[in-house]
Design a protein around this nucleic acid. Structure first.
Length: 444
RNA sequence: GGAGGGGUAGCCAAGCGGUUCAAGGCGGCGCUCUCGAAAAGCGUUUGGGGGCAACCCCAACGUGGGUUCGAAUCCCACCCCCUCCGCCA
């Protein structure tokens, strides 16, 4: 959510944001609605002021005749006021609806572009050579040529999953339909080891471990800006058997419940930055991508994810975003996986809240392509406004900033490891950092 | 599922149709005093609109309706929290 006062003061900046983020909304229409709203507001307020003074006079008047006159006048006023109040409510409703579709103002170093090909490489890393020299970094898919290659015929994660009895997408199709999976045996142990490695790191960094509600109200998802635009991505729960009969939604990420922990709260500046993480199941309808990535467990309706989210003061959100990226890179390097980090361009920077967004992508040698595994986003005060998250700064109250990042998307990290650590005979070496945690050195 | 009690500002808490500001306290911030601090005193503390400004106005007492010239206060519906009973992983 942008501040309406900001929109009034800098309409050109907002129009620019709408254009480069390719948002579907009309800023001029918003400004017009706001003008109408302000005009109606002043009608309503002046009428209320008059009503208040009339009823004050009534209370002070002892003479019955004068009293009756005043009440008669007040009644007339009341009818007019009612009409203005109604009109105001309608205008406010229309305006608020429109405001929900405005994107955040992009950061000055968010690349401007039309799609994935315009994403800019910030770093490319391989276990063998470390970081690629800066001058070799490019756009789009340019890093592919520097990435490791196998000298044998590689198997994809489904073949390997079947071979080691780790992944079953056939029985899940029977129980739940397409895009679900059973994980078994070493896949489960591997997931536990991944979680354990990262949790230890995060706890040592001072993150607060959380378990969070996976069913949330509409307002929470509006707050993080997953709604209204992404409404079709979310499973809605029928609430016939629930106390309040209010519809709840299955979260697609623990980001909404994590940030909503601070919803409608004013915290002290001392408490910030508040760093937290949660490992939860995530549920996504994947409407619109029903034909895409259907093979395997790369894009499923249910997966587990360890999410790292931070509430900060405005002055340090950029720093926090870089800090989370460092944790992402630390993790990928611990696992010795080849990867790159992209600065997402304006047309590809995710949901409306993004002020700036980085993706980490792991190289899959069997597919000869990168796969997104992490997304690091600075939402500045965009979500904080919608969720009403504030902090006391000296005498004043200000909106906080929110920064969110995928710590580890379990399914995709398992794919990454199977793909990169396979040997010609199909056995899979366990990454060194996980060997102790998993209790074995090899999946065979 | 049954029976009670409650929701008032950042926190605690009074008020239960009209005494211009929702009393009072705590905390926060500012000022005075001080070499500095403590203490004390004064002011301030939410959202919005108007004005160059000192200021003026409107809104806000869980949420939404209603009654009234006037609602924190009365009526209706809903939500949330607490205690006890029942059931339960």
């Amino acid at each position: 959510m942008l501040d309406i006062k900001f929109i009034r003061a800098f309409p050109d900046k907002v129009k620019y944001a709408v254009r480069v983020r390719k948002a579907k909304t009309d800023v001029d229409e918003i400004l017009k609605l706001d003008d109408q709203r302000l005009e109606m507001l002043s009608h309503v307020e002046s009428h209320r002021a008059l009503r208040n003074s009339l009823s004050e006079q009534v209370s002070k008047t002892k003479v019955a005749k004068e009293r009756a006159e005043l009440i008669k006048e007040a009644l007339r006023l009341k009818i007019e006021l009612k009409k203005f109040e109604n009109d105001l409510k309608i205008l406010e409703g229309k305006l608020n609806e429109k405001l929900l579709y405005l994107p955040n103002i992009p950061c000055s170093n968010m690349p401007i572009g039309d799609g994935p090909d315009d994403n800019v490489e910030l770093a490319v890393w391989t276990p063998l050579d470390g970081y690629l020299p800066k001058k070799k970094l490019g756009k789009g898919n340019s890093a592919a040529k520097y990435m490791p290659e196998a000298n044998f015929k590689m198997k994809d994660h489904i073949e390997l999953g079947k071979m080691h009895d780790m992944i079953d997408v056939e029985q899940s199709a029977i129980t739940s339909g397409s895009r679900f999976c059973y994980l078994k045996n070493d896949a489960v142990l591997l997931q536990d080891a991944l979680a354990s490695l990262l949790k230890k790191k995060l706890v040592s960094e001072g993150f607060v471990p959380m378990m969070v509600p996976l069913l949330v109200k509409d307002r929470v998802l509006v707050g993080t800006s997953h709604f209204p635009e992404g409404r079709d991505q979310v499973y809605k729960i029928e609430s016939d058997n629930v106390e309040n009969r209010e519809n709840l939604y299955l979260v697609g990420s623990s980001e909404p419940p994590l940030f909503a922990y601070f919803m409608d709260r004013t915290v002290s500046k001392m408490e910030l930055p508040y760093k937290m993480f949660a490992l939860t199941s995530c549920f996504r309808s994947e409407v619109g991508s029903w034909g895409k990535d259907v093979y395997g467990i790369k894009r499923v309706h249910q997966f587990d994810k360890l999410e790292m989210d931070v509430v900060t003061i405005p002055e340090t959100s950029d720093e926090t975003m870089e800090y989370l990226r460092e944790i992402n890179e630390w993790f990928l390097q611990q696992l010795q996986l080849p990867y790159r980090v992209l600065n997402k361009c304006s047309a590809d920077a995710g949901y409306l809240a993004s002020h700036k967004q980085y993706d980490a992508e792991v190289w899959l040698p069997s597919q000869r392509e990168f796969m997104e595994v992490m997304t690091d986003t600075n939402a500045t005060d965009f979500q904080a406004r919608r969720l009403n998250i504030r902090f006391k700064d000296g005498g004043s109250t200000r909106y906080a900033h929110t920064v969110n990042d995928t710590g580890c998307a379990m399914g995709r990290m398992i794919i990454s490891i199977l793909d990169n650590y396979q040997k010609e005979d199909g056995t899979i070496k366990v990454p060194e950092a996980l060997q102790k945690l998993m209790g074995k050195k090899e999946i065979s």
